[in-house]
Design a binder for these strands. Structure first.
Lengths: 217, 217
DNA sequence: TGTTTGAATGTTTTGTTGAATATTTACCCG
DNA sequence: CGGGTAAATATTCAACAAAACATTCAAACA
């Protein structure tokens, strides 16, 4: 959590409250300063600008989410494949809930990834590291025999990107997303040879799905 | 091609020239009409509105692209897996070139998918049908044993969406995209068991790639 | 009667201006 | 000096007027 003891932490706390409640754009530096009993100018002694305050908040939140995902992997007695499924589904649910929960967080995230492309990269790198861990564990248990774990993790991240950036699938409701992720992860885990995505999946009724599988850009 | 003999085809030709050269927004109905030696009002006898002209043009272009992809599948002596690779790579190259080639086409496509969600769905359905053909052929040759071809085609489309909607990967240069598609399609064709994405791929030097695999939203 | 026109209409875009707000700077205090 | 302020400046935003435009329609045409 953001430490309230330091001036810097104090600022972050105050800003976070405002950003989450009123949104990034609707929050002024003057307001944040007032909440901290200081003048607007003084904020610039602690952060280069407004965006950097938001970035610090989001970094903290992102790392917190990664920590949660790490917890998911701690569950004992799961095979590597099961862990991989656990992971991607937990991941999708986390981000989806985050977005649903409030639009303000979403706004912040969008602004930051627009203005600071490197921000998302840092979070993605952490995420990729977890994927690598899963794959490496699968190698260790002889469940997989993956030559280049890091590269494969990158590819997995690529294949499931759609389920982690809800901006990209705005129009798809959660149940359809879940169905797609189920199919994709099955393809990845088993390949096409063993019956494709269709076998042994908990299937949904099919009518009405075809024409709505769209990512509306 | 858009037939220049009919009034309707004439309008489409004129509009296409303007849209491609000046962009959708910067083209006025009056200009299109002037190019066809008619008054603006008369355009509405042939199309409900400006957007419908653009939609007709894009539908034609989309079907043309699908036809090209169909040609790719005609190449003899390829296994089903090879055909699948051929297909997705040709597809990516086609759309990428289209976008690179000029921003105006891109603008049109975006406007249409915003205002006419069903438009993209129709093209996606055609695309999915081709995927189904490939899978069915693979079943016929015993290369695959896919139970539900249509569902699996949907999943494949989902997994490779990123490579077909360049909006989503704006920041990735073509060679990196190709590398990712290579990895993803390998995962899908062979699953994780046989060495993951890393084996037997024409690999690139790895430095500098990690932190740029980002979809900047 | 089937086409075309071009002015009329209402909507969208564009341009402008003043106010809000982010950021900087010069200055104070202990 | 570290820690702060408050006024000065630069940028962004919002409201509103003007212009451009898509669309409509009554009239002309053939």
């Amino acid at each position: 959590m953001l430490c309230k003891d330091t001036v810097r932490g104090n600022i972050l706390e105050a800003a976070k409250k405002r950003f989450v409640h009123y949104g990034y754009a609707k929050t002024t530096m003057a307001e944040i300063a007032a909440d901290c009993n200081m003048s607007p100018g003084n904020l610039y002694r602690y952060f280069p600008g407004k965006l950097d305050i938001a970035e610090a908040i989001c970094t903290e939140a992102g790392e917190h989410a990664i920590a949660k995902l790490r917890d998911v992997l701690k569950r004992p007695g799961r095979s590597a494949k099961e862990r991989l499924r656990d992971f991607v589904f937990a991941d999708m649910r986390l981000t989806y809930e985050q977005i649903e929960y409030d639009k303000q967080v979403f706004e912040m995230a969008r602004v930051i990834s627009m203005e600071r492309p490197q921000f998302a990269n840092r979070i993605l790198a952490l995420h990729r590291a977890l994927l690598s861990e899963i794959l490496a564990a699968g190698n260790a248990s002889s469940e997989f025999s993956i030559e280049d774990v890091v590269f494969t993790a990158e590819m997995l991240q690529s294949a499931t990107m759609k389920f982690r950036y809800p901006q990209l699938h705005s129009k798809l409701p959660y149940d359809k997303l879940e169905r797609e992720l189920e199919g994709v992860i099955h393809l990845v885990l088993n390949g096409l040879d063993d019956g494709g995505a269709g076998r042994e999946l908990p299937r949904m009724p099919k009518e009405g799905l075809k024409s709505e599988t769209l990512v509306t850009i």
